[in-house]
Design a binder for these strands. Structure first.
Length: 509
RNA sequence: GGCCCCUUCGUCUAUCGGCUAGGACGCCAGGUUUUCAUCCUGGAAAGAGGAGUUCGAUUCUCCUAGGGGCUGCCA
């Protein structure tokens, strides 16, 4: 398999929105494929029809697109080895299950769900919580290993429901080399005869996965650590199907953990701790639940992707800001960590701040202008750019540009209480009146000119900035803090600045 | 409970036997700033515990502890 073109797949199941852990798995697949000059494939694993959720598939596709992780082929993206939805490949799987039976690697089992429940319950009552359908227990179950040939045929002919289970040898060591974990070894005595083919005519994950990966010429299986325990089963399936020489390499990724407490990150953690766990907002039409998304919360996809890449991987250098292209270049599965990574929301915000700052004033101005127009405020590109430039150092998100600058768009209706109390007195009033007169004399109402005029007023009267500045800011913006008043006045314009001083003199005590 | 995987500052991590254990987020302090934010400087903060291998272990091995995953006709 050494010279085969790298082909990897991301194979989510459409049982709900894709959460950020899934996005990271997709990302690592993508990065690895692109770096190796290979293909990244999207396959939808919808073999469990009972868990199907409408809209989930579209959500997955839209999420990948938003992140810039474009599949080369797969559901929604075309390709020659489709269909890429397992439900549409249903007819393909049966013959492989039959092959396995024929070769003695699998068998029919007629035990009903109730039968199995009963056996498990009995085992539990007897103090063994982990009953398994395996080389010892299968001898007392209803399957083609125990039943006579004719009895089996009779049940089959009668259309009695059955499943097909893999038949594991006893006491066999199954080993494989995982790219991130090294050699992993499990004894078949600790595994069970997993169902490969369900009574509804659908394969289970285990069978479908192996068959599809083989048919789609997958070279590397990069997936979450939750699959590690079943990887030996998959190795055995490749062997029993005669495909071991073309078996893909495995890489089991560490899980994303909750920021607090124990366990893996779950969808409820977002609401509980105040951050999104999904790339895009998800509205469950049936339950009415709404889960927030990074996109809707104002995150740049580049920041989100950059953050995810660093949750479990590190280039080994001190660089932290990477574009998708740079990630593609630097990525390596060998450098993926083994231990689970706790999600850190502060760091995510920091990444977004870095990306916001890296944008030009023009880009920010455009983004800001769009946001304002959504709020029904129409401003010129020039003004949007000027405000964005002034506010960007104190923003994490585009919406911060607005939150911190709303005074540009409406005159103060209230004045900061503390500043009013401490700084607004007869002196302050006088200064503001004086400034008004001085400003009205400025022909070119630019920040530098205002600055000059203001400073010379201070000099002429032997005043410190602290005596005049706060009252001035309060009068014009209603706030006790913010960016340079000269810049603010310049953006507001002479008339507006003076009008606001008048307003303050009228409204403030 | 059984099986498998994992274990460096609070968090993400660097280190592939030589370490005064580095960086980032967050935190704290000082400076810059009329103010806030930014920015700059500095600081506190880690190798789970115990054996062994070795001239030397954070790095290798084993044990213990802790954490995680799996244990479905779910993926």
């Amino acid at each position: 398999m050494s010279n085969a073109k790298v082909r990897v797949r991301f194979a989510p199941s459409p049982t709900g929105p894709l959460h950020m852990g899934g996005v990271r798995t997709a990302l690592y697949n993508y990065l690895f494929a692109k770096q190796q000059g290979g293909d990244f494939i999207l396959r939808i694993e919808d073999t469990d029809q009972t868990r199907f959720v409408a809209g989930a598939e579209d959500y997955i596709i839209e999420s990948l697109k938003w992140c810039g992780i474009q599949p080369d082929e797969g559901q929604g993206f075309g390709g020659d080895l489709g269909p890429y939805r397992q439900s549409e490949r249903k007819h393909l799987y049966r013959k492989y299950a039959d092959d396995l039976i024929e070769n003695g690697y699998a068998y029919y089992a007629f035990d009903t769900a109730e039968d199995l429940d009963r056996v498990r319950q009995m085992a539990k009552d007897a103090g063994s919580p982990n009953w398994q359908y395996n080389h010892v227990t299968r001898n007392s179950m209803k399957n083609s290993l125990n039943l006579s040939q004719s009895e089996v045929q009779k049940r089959l002919d009668a259309g009695e429901p059955y499943v097909i289970r893999i038949k594991l040898n006893r006491n066999e060591e199954v080993k494989f080399e995982d790219i991130v974990r090294g050699w992993v070894s499990v004894n078949t005595n600790n595994m069970d005869d997993k169902v490969l083919f369900k009574s509804d005519g659908m394969p289970t994950y285990h069978l479908a996965n192996i068959v599809d990966d083989h048919l789609m010429k997958i070279t590397h299986v990069i997936r979450g650590e939750e699959w590690l325990p079943s990887a030996p089963l998959h190795v055995l399936l490749y062997r029993y199907l005669g495909w071991e020489d073309k078996m893909p390499q495995f890489a089991h990724l560490p899980l994303l953990l909750k920021p607090d407490g124990n366990g893996k990150l779950s969808k409820r953690d977002g609401d509980r701790l105040g951050f999104p766990v999904f790339p895009l907002e998800w509205n469950n039409p049936e339950t009415g639940d709404v889960f927030s998304g990074y996109r809707e919360n104002g995150y740049f996809p580049e920041a989100f992707v950059n953050m995810l890449a660093f949750l479990g991987w590190n280039p080994g250098t001190e660089q932290e800001i990477f574009s998708l292209e740079q990630l593609t270049e630097a990525f390596s599965l060998q450098k993926v960590n083994k231990a689970g990574a706790r999600y850190d929301h502060d760091k995510t915000r920091w990444f977004n701040q870095q990306y916001l700052r890296s944008k030009t004033d023009q880009e920010l101005g455009t983004l800001f202008k769009d946001l304002l127009s959504d709020k029904g405020l129409n401003v010129s590109q020039e003004k949007a750019e000027a405000i964005a430039a002034l506010m960007k150092e104190r923003a994490y998100f585009i919406m911060d540009l607005y939150k911190e600058s709303s005074f540009f768009f409406e005159r103060p209706s209230t004045y900061d209480e503390k500043t009013t109390r401490k700084k607004w007195n007869e002196d302050a009033k006088n200064h503001v009146v004086q400034l008004k007169g001085i400003f009205s004399q400025i022909d070119e109402f630019k920040a530098t000119k205002i600055d000059e005029a203001f400073k010379s007023y201070l000099n002429d009267n032997e005043l410190g900035f602290g005596k005049v500045g706060p009252g001035f800011r309060l009068a014009v913006t209603g706030k006790g803090m913010g960016p340079s008043m000269f810049e603010i006045c310049a953006i507001l314009g002479k008339d507006e600045t003076i009008a606001r001083i008048d307003l303050a003199l009228e409204k403030l005590p």
